[in-house]
């Protein structure tokens, strides 16, 4: 009993050090830009680079648009499939897995062939068209995560019965979707959104092959040209991703009413009674 606990603790520590030691080493290295002293000089230098902020905001905006696109595609599709066509669910599931199976480089080359300058729909000739291709690509990459997250949300929600309950009370489709389904899927949508964000924010392959001024290619560029700044950037993007995950957890566990700051019942864990 005691021994097995010690063994599992050691295993956890080894596994954790596997992640934490390189992180710590990177962080320490990022503080050594000035010889013989600790400083945040590398960070100062990163923030002073105008390309840093421009690529960062470019990637933030494209990621947000990708979130919007994937949510707008996935939520109604999943709802409809669960409600009306449960038989095609395995097919949809398979399709959403494809971005994990097909390497991004294959997908993006496919896009370039399909929408290149000599195609029927030449998206690559304009900057706006290429931006569109990029966000569509990001939405594609995020599909497995967003779908699973939303689908799980609907699973626990029993959307079918909720839909029927609302229908029998006189509600039409849009009322049901906006007043009943979406509010209850908030946690699932938000966690899908954060996953999309963390995937597309530092994404390299799509952005680089489409030649977009995004954060991923910028990271790689800096990595080739400089010594200390890449370490600082790595720590910064780690912090950002981590913040995304924390926010995701907070949203995913939030219960309705908790945000209304009602003391007592809403906050009292004893008042929460689970019913089958």
């Amino acid at each position: 009993m005691k021994i097995s606990r010690i063994v599992s603790l050691v295993i956890v520590l080894i596994a954790a050090s596997y992640f934490l030691v390189p992180l710590y080493a990177t962080f320490q290295f990022s503080l050594q830009m000035l010889r013989g002293q600790w400083s945040f000089q590398a960070y100062r230098s990163v923030f002073a680079d105008p390309n840093f902020l421009s690529t960062l905001s470019y990637s933030a905006v494209t990621s947000l648009v990708a979130i919007l696109i994937s949510t707008l595609i996935v939520v109604p599709t999943t709802y409809w499939v669960r409600l009306k066509m449960p038989r095609v669910k395995p097919v949809v599931e398979f399709i959403t897995l494809l971005p994990l199976i097909i390497p991004p480089i294959v997908i993006v080359f496919g896009y370039l062939r399909l929408y290149g300058s000599d195609s029927l729909l030449p998206l690559t000739v304009s900057s706006a068209g290429t931006n569109l291709m990029l966000v569509i690509g990001y939405a594609t990459l995020s599909l497995p995560y967003v779908f699973r997250s939303v689908d799980n949300g609907m699973q626990t929600l029993d959307i079918r019965t909720l839909t029927e309950a609302a229908e029998s009370l006189g509600a039409n489709r849009s009322t049901i979707i906006f007043r009943v389904i979406l509010p209850n899927l908030r946690a699932a949508i938000v966690s899908g959104a954060f996953l999309t964000f963390s995937i597309s924010f530092g994404e390299f392959v799509f952005a680089s092959l489409l030649n977009r001024p995004a954060f991923g290619p910028y990271l790689v560029q800096i990595g080739q040209d400089r010594a200390y700044e890449p370490a600082a950037l790595a720590v910064l993007s780690f912090a950002l991703t981590w913040a995304c995950m924390v926010l995701m957890q907070i949203f995913a566990n939030a219960k309705p009413g908790a945000s209304r700051r009602r003391r007592g019942a809403a906050f009292n864990p004893l008042a929460r009674r689970k019913t089958a």
């Binding site: 929600l157 029993d158 019965t161 909720l162 029927e164 309950a165 609302a166 229908e167 029998s168 009370l169 006189g170 509600a171 039409n172 007043r179 009943v180 509010p183 209850n184 908030r186 309705p256 009413g257 019913t275």
Partner: peptide
């Protein structure tokens, strides 16, 4: 179904989780 003026009660309750008791009752 939404034009039949039917009241339906399900085995699984099917209350709207995002609404209070009063809001649930008020929905229709």
């Amino acid at each position: 179904p939404n034009r039949r003026r039917i009241g339906m009660v399900f085995q699984a309750y099917a209350l709207f989780p995002n609404m209070t008791v009063a809001e649930n009752v008020a929905f229709g």
